[in-house]
Design a protein around this nucleic acid. Structure first.
Lengths: 339, 339
DNA sequence: CTGTTAGCGCTTTCAG
DNA sequence: CTGAAAGCGCTAACAG
């Protein structure tokens, strides 16, 4: 009994036609309840299981959405994926997860593979290397709905779900200013990513509002890994640059900075306050000097998936992309000089 | 041009038969290089893309493996998933991720769905509620290879990949003893999970070896969420139970405990040392009192996937399950009274 | 309400 | 080396 029973087997066993069986199993109103019952009973008896592959081929759908993130284990992304999975599951969709590992080439090959697999939709947070969007043409050509989340790109006709990075950067910086900080460094990320541009813009705007001069040498751009944060902090200290706070554009770099300061016995936040644009509740639980935007990953994931599912089920890709900006109430936990 | 080109289109355009096209696209040796070239060129020209759905149906494979974890955003699982994805991707497989959210019912329905989707293999870390394994019969009946990772269960004929929990528990406890701790509490997890039984056994063995009496009231069993750790710690303190250390069976509960102690201004590790069985490098970066087993998630994920791929590609599910125990060198970072 | 028929797009015998 | 034909298991017209 290697061969799984098919609808034909159950049809034959009942002396009826397989299309009736198909209809019954899909709970079509065009079958008597009586025959439905018979069919269901027989299906049960034979241990029948629908072959989703065949069904999908016929219907030309997969009930699967592809997700591409730079790296699954980054907390922001794993919580986004959690939100995606929950929303997708509730709607009867599965989720295929792929990671670009920040490599454009890998991202391209993944997109290609997912299109071949005929995913019903695509959710992408682009890699740091992605400056070229040719691989997305394939997606458009195949009319596969696509929604960017978090790391979007500034091209029209695509939808994105992001948090309000400008406001976040503004509030984080203003928060430090209100604590009395006057010399605030900023760790920024690659400029091809809108999110980092916007966080930087928010930082600048806050300085301006509070009449603090913007100092070019206070902004250090890196890939924002933990080691980068450590190195950035070291540079500032070694060069004796006078700072009393750092606004880091992500959590990893903030953690690196904290690590360095702890080693140097520099007090946080008394000597130098740190705010990391972050979504790492565990870290903040044990180190309150880290700022988190709690739940932002989850919320972005859910929102992006809902938007995507709309496109998929309406079968209408909107002419113009839509950008959903999630106004997260920032600074749930604060780095504070007064604490 | 809504309809994607098929092999028939490219056959027709070339005046040849579609089976030749199929062979050429699969790089069969039974086609001339010359015709292959012609076919490849035409495929390119028409923008042909293989319909993997159809191919899979025909070949009765999916090149997809299903992964079930309790919760994606838990760092241990997200790093395991990262390892799974990397290994699977390298072998040409995709990964469908599902979360049980610790609910048996959900786990059952997910297993069912993945079997219907005809995944080629299954990687499962069971939920805390899973005391009943009937839903796995379906997997066996369909001859779908299955490998448990981390949270396995004690039933024969299934393979598992785990870390050496007994040794880990032993070493963590012994480490505390060597620091001079004599009253070590243990936060344990649900007893249906082997991992928690084994960590507890390791704890007991270490006490025994060092001639410390095992005290039943030092062991607190919970679901090991952050709040549980907080509450457990509070109970110990409120009841004035004399302890100088805690070995927590996971990181979350350890973090909750640390949080409580910090609020109470109880010094870590001077007053109470904490070791959490953990895989959360970010937390340990900023709080060295937490112990981590770094990379264990990644390693388990990769190892489990390799084992599963073996089963899939050999098409042979071994008669008897195999348990791979990863001997992680523990205690990369330590909680130490001397530090 | 049920049956007949024709595919979805691909792979794979079996012939030639 | 290439072609013809059958069919993976299911669904969806179209009849009746």
């Amino acid at each position: 009994m290697n061969n799984k029973p098919t609808i034909h087997d159950i049809a034959k066993a009942l002396g009826i036609n397989s299309s009736t069986v198909s209809r019954a199993l899909n709970d079509s109103p065009r079958v008597t309840q009586k025959t439905k019952n018979k069919i269901l009973a027989m299906a049960q008896e034979l241990g029948y299981q629908r072959n989703v592959l065949a069904s999908n081929l016929r219907k030309n759908v997969t009930h699967t959405i592809g997700v591409i993130v730079p790296r699954i284990s980054r907390h922001f992304f794993s919580s986004a994926i959690q939100g995606i999975e929950e929303t997708a599951y509730a709607a009867g969709y599965n989720v295929i997860i792929c990671q670009s590992l920040e490599q454009l080439e890998r991202e391209q090959s993944i997109v290609n593979g997912l299109v071949e697999k005929r995913v019903d939709g695509l959710l992408i947070s682009i890699s740091m290397e992605t400056l070229n969007y040719d691989h997305l043409d394939l997606v458009a050509k195949n009319k596969i709905p696509l929604v960017f989340f978090d790391r979007h790109c500034n091209i029209p006709n695509y939808s994105s779900v992001i948090i309000d990075d400008f406001k976040g950067g503004f509030e984080a910086t203003e928060h430090l200013i209100k604590q009395g900080c006057k010399h605030i460094a900023h760790f920024s990320g690659p400029k091809n990513l809108e999110i980092y541009k916007n966080r930087l813009a928010g930082y600048k705007a806050a300085l301006k509002k509070h009449k603090l001069t913007f100092n070019e040498s206070y902004v250090i751009t890196s890939r924002l890994m933990e080691d980068d944060g450590y190195a950035n902090m070291k540079v500032l200290i070694d060069k004796n640059i006078e700072i009393d706070a750092v606004f880091s554009a992500n959590d990893m770099a903030a953690i690196g900075a904290i690590k360095f300061l702890k080693q140097q016995k520099i007090a946080i936040p008394e000597d130098i306050a740190i705010v990391g644009f972050s979504n790492e509740p565990i870290s903040t639980a044990i180190e309150p000097s880290l700022t988190t935007i709690d739940q932002s990953g989850l919320t972005i994931g859910k929102t992006a998936t809902n938007l995507l599912l709309n496109y998929i089920e309406e079968k209408s890709i909107p002419e113009k992309g839509k950008t959903v900006i999630i106004d997260t109430s920032l600074l749930e936990r604060n780095s504070s000089k007064k604490e």
